[in-house]
Design a protein around this nucleic acid. Structure first.
Lengths: 139, 139
DNA sequence: TTTAGTTGTAACTATAATGATTACAACGGT
DNA sequence: ACCGTTGTAATCATTATAGTTACAACTAAA
């Protein structure tokens, strides 16, 4: 199976840099640290801006956090860049046969279970802040 | 972002049917209940067989569980059909700049965090058995 | 006001996973 | 031998991803 996209990790990388040097790191600078194309970073910054996590200075360059780093969790970042339909991580096949007891119930039953599994993951992400991550970056 | 593939939910559906009528439901029968092509089901049954969850009767048709339904968890099924590189759900960008404090640490730091988030999800899946699901199928 | 550097997007590409489908060989009970 | 089934290869359309080029819009500084 395919892994979740690297947008999430690139977004965390981006925000970590913005936290450390709010007004200095341009899209090109971040792209060099992430080692990707600047447009990829600009797209991610655009999503972070839409989610209300950062403010970007058009023309002049640089960005800054709209929330203190100790209130910005990995879940906030995850939700900003990894958006799924109905906010559901797991895909469930539909149009099962209603003539079959399993087919007629599987969607609802699984939906409940998988939702809880997804929440377990998200709650773990919510327990880590950008600030906590920053402390782990060895200079 | 894209949701996780529906192989997982189709596998749960398949195993639920096998539990209810072990030797009767052929690939074609299951495919009709799931409402997909029989080959899709055969591929999933092939993965479940490789994972040691079922035994399939070639030629004659039908299958049966190799573990009691109250010992077969959603995590077993998930691991049988949703296989990622290194068993990691989250993708992390690599080749970050080692000249940057963030770039040189981000991979390891995030790897640790995301591994724990993944485990939180998997532990939740491990708490539900196929038997528990079966009780929820209203006749 | 011009210039240089930056952000914001659209457009295009290559790659890969997914799910569906056809085709056919191999199997096994009747 | 026959018929229904499993096993698997091959192909296809669709879609997300990440990279890339191109260019308009913005802002400060010269």
């Amino acid at each position: 199976m395919k892994q979740l996209s690297t947008r999430f990790s690139m977004a965390v990388h981006t925000l970590s840099l913005i936290e450390m040097c709010p007004l200095e790191c341009t899209g090109d600078f971040i792209a060099a640290s992430v080692n990707t194309n600047p447009v990829v970073i600009r797209r991610i910054m655009s999503m972070l801006k839409k989610a209300g996590l950062i403010e970007v200075r058009a023309g002049i360059g640089g960005a800054y956090l709209l929330k203190p780093a100790d209130e910005l969790t990995l879940l906030d970042i995850y939700r900003a860049v990894e958006v799924t339909e109905e906010n559901r991580l797991f895909g469930i096949h539909d149009h099962s046969s209603i003539a079959c007891p399993v087919g007629r119930n599987i969607e609802q039953v699984l939906q409940q279970e998988l939702q809880e599994a997804q929440q377990a993951m998200e709650q773990r992400l919510a327990r880590t802040t950008l600030q906590q991550l920053g402390k782990q970056f060895v200079l």
